[in-house]
Computed example of a mutant assay.
Amino acid sequence: MATPAIENIVNLHPNVDITIFGSAISTRVFEYHPNVQRIVIDGSRKQKFRVFHLYKQARQLGRFDCAISFRRTLASKLFVWFCEATLKGNYRRYTKRAIHQVIRYNDFVNKVFKVKVSASQLTIYKNQKPVNTHKSDKKLLGINPGASYGSAKRWYPEEFAKVAGELSGQYDIVIFGGPGETDIASDIEKSLIENGITNYQNLAGKTSITALIENISNLDLFITGDSGPMHVAAAFQVPTVAIFGPTKDDETSQWMNDKSVIVKKNLKCQPCMKRTCPLQHHDCMKLITAVEVLDAVKRLN
């Protein structure tokens, strides 16, 4: 969701050389960005004396005209402070009212560079050599049941399987997920097998972030919870049904994807923003049915 703000920096300074510093997962989004000269993985996270290692990494990067962080943690503030840079900026929220996170990031960049430009679409640059090509008469449906935020954001595997089963006549199915989401993906796979459905792939825990981006970009339809892959789909304008429970869809839904439908329940306890259901009933997800998601798919067609 920070990519529109970064693209606005590039538009202001077309010849800028960018160094991306962060986690091994998030930095992969910029692997093929034409202005990104270096990607440096934050190696301080598991270090006993993290502040010292942050300082060491910041100094090893060299000098910059500008150093900014899109995070609000103490570690990110220290890192920017340690950097040798003429202009520095740490992300902050400038309003308490509910606005999309893309706008928050863009407002931050506007403040740092003293400009007033609007945020455009999410932008991810792909490898020019395709990782996979889909050879089938059917369209391609992606199922993303996981969510790293916590179990409260996850819809149920049996419901995902019902949706995939109903659509398997029109679509070949790809199940996505990270290394920690292989169990829920396996549950979906088992349900498909029990129902005699064979035109699927289970890629959970088997792909790199780069391959995940490539695979999502080639989809004809994506059904997902509120997650990172949901935003990847938005960057490529993939028709998407996004299932929301405890989180704020007005702040973290797909940005500028006209082919997007949100399914949610609007309960009094929503949005609680908790990683697990504090009321222990999980109704914000439990009450969403496969029929509702299939109806949302029809609205996209």
Rank of each mutant, 00 (worst) to 15 (best):
H13W: 14
P14S: 11
P14K: 13
N15R: 15
N15V: 08
D17H: 13
D17A: 12
I18D: 00
T19I: 12
T19V: 15
I25P: 01
V29Q: 08
V29F: 12
V29A: 11
H33A: 09
P34K: 15
P34Y: 09
V36D: 08
V36P: 01
Q37P: 01
Q37L: 11
Q37W: 00
Q37A: 10
R38F: 04
R38S: 13
I39G: 00
I39P: 01
I41C: 08
I41L: 13
G43F: 09
G43R: 13
R45G: 03
K46D: 07
K48F: 12
K48M: 08
R50D: 06
V51G: 04
F52V: 15
F52H: 06
H53D: 14
Y55H: 08
Q57F: 09
Q57H: 13
R59D: 02
Q60T: 08
L61S: 08
G62Q: 08
G62R: 00
F64Y: 14
C66K: 08
A67L: 10
S69N: 07
S69K: 02
S69P: 06
F70R: 05
R72N: 13
S76C: 09
K77D: 02
L78F: 05
L78R: 02
F79N: 04
V80P: 07
C83E: 00
C83Q: 01
L87N: 02
G89M: 04
N90E: 10
N90G: 14
N90Q: 03
Y91C: 06
Y94I: 09
T95G: 01
T95K: 03
K96A: 12
K96V: 03
R97T: 12
R97E: 13
R97C: 00
A98M: 10
H100W: 04
N106Q: 11
N106E: 01
D107R: 07
D107S: 10
D107L: 12
V109F: 02
N110A: 07
